[in-house]
Design a protein around this nucleic acid. Structure first.
Lengths: 289, 289
DNA sequence: ACGATGGATAGGCATAGCCTATGGAGCTCC
DNA sequence: GGAGCTCCATAGGCTATGCCTATCCATCGT
């Protein structure tokens, strides 16, 4: 049983004539006749009585007609649904973000995007980079925002912004009034850093390495705000990205002028994964500058 | 969009693999791939993400899946409905019958048939022959029971029974004690006959013609029982078919022995019209002897 | 690095649906 | 009542399309 057979059948039922049905269906009358006959053979029953002049549905034909129409109606609904939704910017979007970006960057972007596309429902997952990448692979996350570069060519990355790093110092620190410094200037300071696993810890440590600095870490935490409180209390110094700089904290922030003392944030999606219009719109909203 | 494409799509969605879906669908994997691609092209959107190892539904695929299933479900329902009902003896049957047969013959047949096939719902139309034939042509009547022969080769007729004709005489009539008579014996009698239009009137008149008898008709009616009451009252004589003979009436009935003084009842259906199992069963019930 | 797995691509083939021409039955009109 | 028309069925040929095998290419696991 094929769809065009059902269409022909309905056309004959509607027009009451094979010829008119053929015309309406844009096929030759014999073609339509053949298909109706085939359909009848498959069902094992006549659907029409051919009575010289007129063609009439048999009892079984009358039963079959609404069912055939239902099939075609469902088909149109299926087609229409997809065609309609494929250009619709809406539905669920799950964004993954690393903790050192989440609180500083996402809220602003999400609110401005939601104003433009209120139909899009966001879910935000805040996890460290390797977890986010796993979730991307599994399809649990649509877009991730994290520090580049990352390894794995199954991902498509695109840089969003590169920010400078800052030294967070107690207010009364000897370097607090400087407008810039080098990591080497922090040679003898006790360090407060993020816990292992956070990629910004790696960024900071790598910068230190390049400066031949082996920081003495006296405190570790999972979020900047804890570190900065401790710094404000005079326990030591820390390194933070620009977006984590708190204007009205107890700390002073001095730009670290070392070469490559930066962090690049970018978007990551799974390569080969098809994106909805909502995903695409969100991505281009992020990269809109 | 074709049905096999929907089937393939569902198979891939279920198995999560083109290869397994192809196997399950009994086609080669490339064939299935091609059809999925065609489907995606027609919809203008990817339905699956091909991610090296695994295949996953896209957002649109997830939307499309239940709709595709709905189409296939409707299709199966349509097929099943017809296949189920085509062997089912039930549903409506409309029987047409002429007035001179209706009250004597049908009740007995309908009750015995309904005992066998209680699912069949009967509608009985009692009309004169030309009306019944029109209704047959229009499909408003499925089977007609009337006097043969009829004209028109668009009908299929089959004789049911041939009955003798009887003279209906008042009790004290001079011929009332005879066991048989000839129409010529009624030469001088006043006749009571059915109204024009009733085919049995034609049957009676034709029999009289053959007997060179030109009856003086003093009363006409649409039903035998009226005629027979009048005959019982001594107003004249009449001619009735065997099935109209009333055992406990005021009349005497004497067999008319003339050649061809008979009436043949038969079934009529529209040639080329397909009959349901209920129609077929009813016809063979009628002709069961 | 290698083979195994899984999907896409290429090219050939056969079927199936479409076409035109024609047949045959029924209806209309002169 | 016969000629012509209408309408569905049949016949025969053509083409498109879906299927096949062989092969390619990327990924994944050993």
């Amino acid at each position: 049983m094929e769809l065009h057979q059902l269409r022909y059948f309905c056309a004959v039922a509607e027009t009451g004539s094979f010829s008119r049905a053929a015309e309406q269906s844009h096929v030759a009358q014999p073609s339509l006749s053949q298909q109706i006959i085939k359909l009848e053979e498959e069902l094992g029953a006549r659907l029409f009585d051919r009575l010289g002049r007129s063609v009439r549905l048999t009892e079984l034909g009358k039963i079959f007609l609404p069912r055939a129409r239902a099939v075609l109606r469902e088909l149109e609904a299926a087609k229409g649904d997809v065609v309609e939704r494929k250009d619709f910017v809406g539905g669920p979007v799950t964004v993954g973000v690393i903790p050192t970006v989440g609180p500083y960057f996402l809220p602003r972007v999400l609110t401005s995007f939601s104003r433009k596309f209120p139909q899009v429902r966001f879910t935000v997952v805040e996890e460290i980079t390797p977890v986010l990448l796993d979730r991307l692979r599994a399809g649990a996350i649509d877009v991730a925002i994290l520090a580049l570069p990352i390894r794995g060519h199954e991902f498509e990355t695109k840089p969003l912004l590169t920010e400078r790093l800052f030294a967070a110092l107690p207010k009364n620190h000897r370097l607090a009034k400087r407008t810039a410094l080098s990591l080497r200037d922090l040679r003898s300071e006790p360090f407060l850093l993020l816990r292992d696993g956070h990629c910004f810890r790696d960024t900071a440590v790598a910068a230190c390495d390049r400066a031949r600095l082996h920081p003495q870490v006296i405190f570790e935490s999972g979020q900047f705000s804890s570190l900065l409180s401790m710094v404000g209390a005079g326990m030591g110094v820390s390194i933070v990205p620009e977006m984590a700089v708190e204007r009205k904290s107890q700390c002073r922030y001095v730009h670290i002028a070392d070469e490559q003392a930066t962090r690049t944030i970018g978007t990551v999606v799974l390569r080969g994964r098809s994106l909805t219009r909502a995903h695409q719109a969100f991505l281009s909203h992020l990269h809109r500058d």
